[in-house]
């Protein structure tokens, strides 16, 4: 398959595909982080996670239109405002959903799956009624457009770099929040032993709601970042949901580090194969490999040693 390429070209191909894989990796990590918190820590399967992400994307879209129409002078920084609003909107919706639906279903994880699937249908149709069935894209500010030319064949897009930087920042933030801050300790305490956590004075219901809202909020930010590299449609969330669940399960549901490692493996192998095979075959092979490995090692790559 390497016939007709020089060594330098093959290197460049791998570098370019590797970079494309890194962008995919960023999207996976952002989506999977929220899911790892909700699914890994709380054990709730949120099939509407993709729709929370799309909510963030639509908030960004509205924000970009608003800035372009009313305050064009500040258009260069609209994205940061949009990201914050996306976090708030998705988080607020998440808290509402937790209160109305999820908290009644903590003992029935498979039923949450069905209920949140219903929620995702409703949200999809809501987006379609409000924004139309066609995909929408945002206008990037000037400083995010264009690319660096590293060598004469390797180009690096600035918006891709920006999304990666953002991912890094959010991941570190979430890591600090979960492992260093008081809130994270409470979350982990509640998930490991709900009764004991309640006994030492943690308001477990409140922690549940905040955790779910946080996971949804991160999904909103992911959606916001997603608009930088692709367009948004009402059903775009559904395309990613299975991959994201596989990323989380493959990484070992309880481990944030595992989630990142598995997002990296899956995205890199998929984008490397995409160059040589068709996109759909690359995806089939990647998913098959993941499912195969999960059959051999059901607990995922990184797993906590827990006594059951």
């Amino acid at each position: 398959m390497f016939d007709g390429y020089t060594m330098g070209e093959i290197g460049a191909i791998f570098a370019m595909q590797g970079f494309a894989g890194l962008i995919l990796f960023s999207v996976f990590v952002l989506m999977a982080l929220g899911l790892a918190i909700i699914f890994g820590q709380m054990g709730v399967i949120n099939m509407a996670h993709g729709e929370f992400m799309i909510l963030g994307a639509y908030v960004t879209y509205l924000c970009s239109n608003f800035f372009a129409d009313y305050i064009p002078a500040l258009f260069g920084i609209y994205f940061f405002v949009a990201m914050f609003l996306a976090f708030l909107a998705a988080g607020a919706l998440g808290a509402l959903v937790e209160w109305a639906m999820i908290r009644h279903l903590y003992r029935r994880p498979l039923d949450t799956l069905l209920a949140t699937w219903g929620l995702s249908l409703i949200l999809q149709q809501t987006y379609r009624s409000i924004f139309g069935a066609r995909e929408v894209g945002v206008t990037l500010p000037d400083w995010l457009m264009g690319s660096f030319a590293l060598t004469d064949i390797i180009d690096v897009q600035i918006n891709g770099l920006f999304v990666m930087g953002l991912t890094l920042l959010i991941t570190v933030g979430v890591g600090l929040l979960m492992f260093k801050a008081r809130f994270g300790r409470q979350v982990r305490a509640v998930m490991q032993n709900r009764m004991m956590a309640g006994a030492v004075g943690i308001d477990t219901e409140k922690v549940d709601r905040k955790t779910f809202a946080l996971g949804c909020g991160i999904a909103g930010v992911a959606g916001s970042a997603f608009t930088m590299i692709g367009s948004t449609g009402p059903t775009a969330g559904q395309l990613y949901i299975v991959d994201t669940f596989l990323v989380v399960v493959f990484g070992g549901a309880q481990s944030l580090l595992g989630t990142i490692a598995s997002a990296f493996t899956i995205s890199q192998s998929q984008s490397a194969m995409e160059f040589f095979l068709s996109g759909s075959m690359a995806k089939v092979l990647t998913l098959l490999t993941v499912v195969g490995i999960l059959m051999l090692r059901p607990q995922g790559l990184f797993s906590l040693k827990v006594r059951r």
Binding site: G43, F245, V284, L287, V291, L294
Partner: peptide, 24 residues
Amino acid sequence: RVGGVYFAIITQAVAAILSILIIG
């Protein structure tokens, strides 16, 4: 001994794989 939620997710992935394969 994979069961419950994990089984649901993996069967879902199998459904995704087969439909992508058929379309591809």
